[in-house]
């Protein structure tokens, strides 16, 4: 096992899993429940009979009393597919530890918990487009393969979330939860990609990871900034005034991301890499976003 995922990391994952069990107290089954209504065990609602409905689900009692054909609906129970779309662009390779390492740990932790809940997970790194993926897999035994996969992942190129997620949707994968782990620094924008994913019927979660210097730059004076993705260089003179403006723009950027996510019923988590990743995971669990 490499440095990224050592024994200590595995202990932390187990600890996280136990904590998650406490957080979701009262839940006897680890299975996730689909939001879709179908033919499962748990009654959900009635609707009028339409030709083609399974006659086994007609409520004959109600027909006898009311003379109206009504079909009973149940929550469809199915295994949850969790797709981790991991931003592998160069902008993620920033800071110490890098956002990329941090993101891989987050993906590994969430994946471990998901596998422990008998969900299927797939890891799809992306940059300008989708990169070689870790396909859907189930069972905790997959975790070591996932570690190996994640450790071998390298930062690739520029971000093009639109293109990558469009390709993901075009593959018509089974519906499930799409967890986008990224810094959301995309010159082409992320809104269209998220909307497409939502429109395609996937549940969405967004984990935005930033380095603390991105939130609070600590430079002063004239500096030459180099964009790690585009390589574009810009010289600026940083003073208190420009810093205040930067932080206003930064907050506005995050707010816009949060607004977009909420409009798409997308769970949104923002974290800086200075906090321990396990705290981030717990925060995610407490908000009940990923695991139910």
């Amino acid at each position: 096992m490499g440095k990224l995922f050592d024994d200590e990391f595995l202990k932390k994952l187990e600890y996280l899993y136990l904590l998650s069990k406490k957080i979701f107290t009262g839940r006897t089954q680890a299975q996730s429940r689909s939001k879709k209504l179908g033919w499962g065990m748990e009654f959900a609602d009635y609707r009028n009979y339409v030709p083609g409905d399974d006659l086994r689900y007609l409520d004959w009692n109600l027909y006898a009393r009311m003379g109206q054909l009504v079909t009973k609906l149940f929550h469809e129970e199915e295994n949850l597919n969790v797709y981790f779309l991991l931003d592998a662009s160069r902008s993620m390779d920033y800071g110490t530890p890098s956002k990329y390492d941090y993101a891989r740990k987050v993906v590994a932790a969430l994946g471990y918990v998901a596998l422990s809940n008998l969900d299927s997970i797939a890891i799809l790194p992306f940059g300008r487009e989708l990169l070689p993926e870790f396909p859907l897999a189930r069972g905790k035994t997959q975790i070591l393969k996932i570690f190996e996969f994640l450790e071998k992942l390298e930062v690739a190129e520029q971000t093009d979330m639109n293109r990558a997620l469009s390709a993901f949707i075009a593959q018509k994968r089974p519906k499930g939860l799409v967890v986008v782990v990224s810094d959301f620094w995309d010159e082409a924008g992320y809104e269209r990609a998220l909307k497409l994913t939502y429109s395609a019927g996937y549940d969405l979660s967004a984990v935005c990871l930033h380095h603390e210097y991105e939130a609070h730059p600590k430079w002063r004076g004239t500096v030459m900034l180099t964009d790690t993705e585009s390589g574009r260089r810009q010289q600026i003179s940083i003073n208190a005034r420009s810093l205040r403006k930067y932080m206003r723009e930064y907050d506005a950027y995050l707010e816009r991301l949060r607004t977009v996510c909420h409009s798409l019923h997308c769970h949104y988590v923002y974290a800086q890499t200075r906090i321990a990743f396990e705290d981030l995971i717990l925060n995610v669990f407490r908000e009940g976003q990923f695991i139910k």
């Binding site: 902008s91 810094d183 620094w185 900034l225 964009d227 790690t228 993705e229 260089r233 403006k245 950027y253």
Partner: peptide, 28 residues
């Protein structure tokens, strides 16, 4: 000035909004 004051950032998207116009290399 270039050698000693260079800083890498994940993205210059925010900085470009802070600056009225980009002070690019040609401007330097």
């Amino acid at each position: 000035r270039f050698a000693r004051r260079g800083r890498a950032v994940s993205s210059t998207l925010i900085w470009e909004k802070v600056m009225r116009t980009g002070r690019s290399l040609w401007r330097e």
